[in-house]
Deep mutational scan, measured.
Amino acid sequence: NQASVVANQLIPINTALTLVMMRSEVVTPVGIPAEDIPRLVSMQVNRAVPLGTTLMPDMVRGYA
């Protein structure tokens, strides 16, 4: 089972991601792999991401 990136807090739209906003968790469906967390830092979300939501590739500008 692969860990995915999950929002550690509410992340408002257009917010640049920081390490404290994300955690890794084994979830279904699988989202962005946890090993990509360092790559996600400073990328912006293109929608509001509620606490506990799995980050999907289409939620992060420039990721996919």
Rank of each mutant, 00 (worst) to 15 (best):
N1D: 15
N1I: 15
N1S: 15
N1K: 04
N1M: 15
N1E: 15
N1V: 15
Q2G: 15
Q2L: 15
Q2M: 14
Q2C: 12
Q2T: 10
Q2A: 13
A3K: 05
A3N: 06
A3V: 09
A3C: 10
A3L: 15
V5Q: 01
V5D: 00
V5H: 01
V5M: 02
V5A: 10
V6P: 01
V6D: 00
V6G: 01
A7L: 03
A7K: 01
A7H: 02
N8K: 09
N8Y: 05
N8H: 13
N8R: 09
N8T: 15
Q9M: 08
Q9P: 02
Q9R: 13
Q9D: 11
Q9W: 14
L10P: 14
L10D: 12
L10K: 07
I11D: 01
I11K: 00
I11R: 01
I11S: 01
I11T: 01
I11Q: 01
P12D: 14
P12N: 13
P12W: 08
P12I: 09
P12A: 11
P12T: 11
P12L: 11
P12S: 14
I13C: 08
I13S: 14
I13T: 12
I13Q: 15
N14H: 08
N14K: 09
N14I: 02
N14Y: 09
N14A: 08
N14M: 09
T15E: 07
T15W: 09
T15R: 07
T15V: 09
A16G: 06
A16H: 14
A16S: 15
A16M: 11
A16N: 06
A16K: 05
L17H: 00
L17E: 00
L17Q: 01
L17Y: 01
L17P: 02
L17G: 01
L17T: 00
L17D: 01
T18D: 04
T18M: 06
T18P: 00
T18A: 10
T18V: 10
L19V: 04
L19K: 06
L19R: 11
L19D: 03
L19W: 13
L19Q: 05
L19A: 06
L19N: 04
V20W: 15
V20S: 14
V20M: 15
V20Q: 10
V20E: 07
V20R: 12
M21Q: 04
M22K: 00
M22P: 00
M22L: 12
M22V: 12
M22N: 00
M22H: 00
M22A: 00
R23L: 05
R23V: 04
R23A: 07
S24T: 12
S24W: 12
S24N: 09
S24L: 07
S24I: 14
S24Y: 09
E25C: 06
E25V: 06
E25W: 05
E25N: 06
E25R: 05
V26H: 09
V26T: 13
V26F: 08
V27R: 07
V27D: 02
V27C: 04
V27Q: 10
V27E: 02
V27T: 11
T28A: 08
T28Y: 11
P29I: 08
P29H: 07
P29Q: 07
P29V: 08
P29L: 08
P29F: 06
V30F: 13
V30M: 15
V30S: 11
V30C: 11
V30H: 14
G31A: 04
G31E: 00
G31Y: 02
G31I: 01
G31K: 01
G31V: 02
I32W: 02
I32A: 02
I32V: 08
I32C: 03
I32Q: 00
I32R: 01
I32S: 01
P33R: 08
P33N: 11
P33S: 08
P33Y: 15
P33M: 12
P33F: 08
A34S: 15
A34L: 04
A34P: 08
E35T: 10
E35Y: 10
E35L: 06
E35K: 07
D36Q: 10
D36Y: 14
I37N: 00
I37P: 01
I37S: 04
I37T: 09
I37W: 03
I37M: 14
P38G: 12
P38L: 09
P38T: 11
R39P: 03
R39V: 07
R39M: 10
R39L: 11
R39C: 06
L40Y: 02
L40M: 09
L40F: 02
L40V: 09
L40C: 05
L40N: 00
L40S: 00
V41P: 03
S42T: 12
S42Y: 12
S42E: 06
S42W: 14
S42N: 14
S42L: 14
S42I: 03
M43D: 03
M43E: 04
Q44V: 11
Q44M: 13
Q44Y: 14
Q44I: 07
Q44K: 09
Q44C: 15
V45L: 11
V45M: 08
V45N: 03
V45G: 01
V45K: 01
N46M: 14
N46I: 15
N46V: 14
N46P: 03
N46Q: 09
N46K: 11
N46Y: 14
R47V: 11
R47Y: 13
R47N: 15
R47I: 06
R47M: 12
A48I: 13
A48W: 08
V49F: 02
P50G: 12
P50S: 09
P50N: 13
P50V: 11
P50H: 10
P50A: 12
P50L: 14
L51Y: 12
L51V: 11
L51Q: 14
L51S: 14
L51M: 15
L51P: 13
G52M: 12
G52C: 06
G52K: 04
T53H: 14
T53K: 10
T53N: 09
T53L: 15
T53E: 14
T53W: 13
T54A: 06
T54R: 03
T54E: 01
T54M: 04
T54W: 02
T54P: 08
T54Q: 04
T54G: 03
L55W: 01
L55Q: 00
L55A: 00
L55H: 00
L55E: 01
L55F: 12
L55C: 02
M56D: 05
P57V: 07
P57Q: 06
D58W: 11
D58E: 07
D58A: 12
D58R: 05
D58H: 08
M59E: 03
M59P: 01
M59K: 02
M59W: 07
M59G: 03
M59R: 03
V60S: 01
V60L: 09
R61H: 09
R61F: 08
R61L: 09
R61A: 10
R61T: 14
R61S: 09
G62S: 07
G62C: 15
G62R: 05
G62L: 09
Y63N: 04
Y63S: 03
A64Y: 03
A64S: 12
